[in-house]
Design a protein around this nucleic acid. Structure first.
Lengths: 152, 152
DNA sequence: CTGATATCAGTTGTACTGATATAT
DNA sequence: CATATATCAGTACAACTGATATCA
C-alpha cells in the first residue's frame, strides 16, 4: 500500500480464468484497492485509517475502555494505543483512568471528536462509492450481505 | 498476517452497524482471513503464496518473459524476481535468455513444476472452500461474479 | 533518444506476536 | 495463583517506489 500515481500490474486480458475467478486473489486485489482509495482520501486530513473506526465506536457505543474499543472496532489493542495517542493529542478524545477499575482507561469522545467524525463520514462514504462504482445499488446490497456472512 | 493460533479481536456483538456494514472494512477483514488460510495451508509445502499464480500462468498461457508473467498474474515485477529464483532453485521452472530479444528471459515450466502445481491446486481449492464455507453454492457463484465486476 | 526489461534495495501500512507492569 | 488491561518492541507480509544496467 502506498499513495501516488498508480498503474495496475495485471492486464485483465492476460490473466488466466483460474486466477481471475479465485476468491482469495479477488479479495486481496479489491482490498488493496480499498486501501489505496482510503489512504488517498484521508491523506488530506492527516487522519489515520483507524481513527474513523474508533470515533464511530465511541459515538455509537459510548465511552469505553481500550480493550472494549478493540473488541468494538477489530483494531488490535497494540495498535489502538498509538491511535488514541494521536486522537488525544488532537483533542478528539479524552483518556482518563477508570476509578472503578484502575487497570482501565476510560476513553470518551469530545465535541471536537464529533466534528472530526462528521467530516470523516463524508470522506468514507465517497470511498465506498468509488470502490463499488461498478455495481448497481441492488448488487451493492447483495454484496454487503454476502461479505457480512463471510466475516462472521 | 502471521500463522499460529488465532483469536479474533473484534466481537461481532459489539461492532456498531456503521462499521459492520462498511465494504472497505469487510474487504480488509476477509482478505486478512484469506491470507491467514493461504499461509497456513502453504506453510507445510514451503511454497510462497505467489508460486501458485506463476505456475498457473505458465501452464495456462505457455512460456513467457517475466514482464508478461507479471501482467498475467498481477505479481509485481520486483517481487517476481525472488519467486522465480525460488522456483528455479527447486527445478520447477527454467529461466533462459530470449534469443530474439536479449532484454528478456523466457520462463518455462518443467515437469516437476507441473507436479508441484497439481499438489498446490488441491491446497488452493481447500482454502477457497474454507474461506467461503458460510455461503451456499449459488451465493459463492454470485459473490465471485460481483468481485470480478469490482476488480476490472 | 525513448521505451521496455530484469534486478535490487528500500519503504509503508496492516495485522499481528511476545513480553512487561499493573491491577482484579 | 489466574486473568484482564495498557503499553511497547519487534515481526511478517503484500504491495509497492525508485534506481540502475541492459538492450530494442
Amino acid at each position: 500500500m502506498k499513495a501516488g500515481e498508480w498503474e495496475d500490474v495485471a492486464d485483465p486480458e492476460l490473466v488466466p480464468e483460474r486466477l481471475a475467478a479465485l476468491p482469495s486473489r479477488l479479495f486481496g486485489r479489491i482490498s488493496a484497492r480499498a486501501d489505496r482509495l482510503s489512504t488517498a482520501a484521508l491523506a488530506a486530513t492527516g487522519a489515520h485509517r483507524w481513527q474513523y473506526a474508533v470515533l464511530v465506536a465511541l459515538v455509537d457505543g459510548g465511552p469505553a475502555s481500550q480493550a472494549t474499543l478493540s473488541r468494538r472496532t477489530g483494531v488490535h489493542r497494540s495498535d489502538l494505543v498509538a491511535v488514541l495517542n494521536e486522537l488525544t493529542a488532537a483533542g478528539h478524545v479524552v483518556r482518563e483512568p477508570d476509578p472503578d477499575d484502575r487497570r482501565r482507561n476510560v476513553i470518551a469522545i469530545t465535541r471536537s471528536g464529533r466534528n472530526r467524525l462528521r467530516s470523516l463520514d463524508a470522506l468514507v462514504d465517497r470511498v465506498q462509492d468509488d470502490l463499488l462504482a461498478a455495481l448497481t445499488r441492488s448488487e451493492r446490497t447483495e454484496l454487503v450481505r454476502l461479505l457480512r456472512k463471510l466475516s462472521d
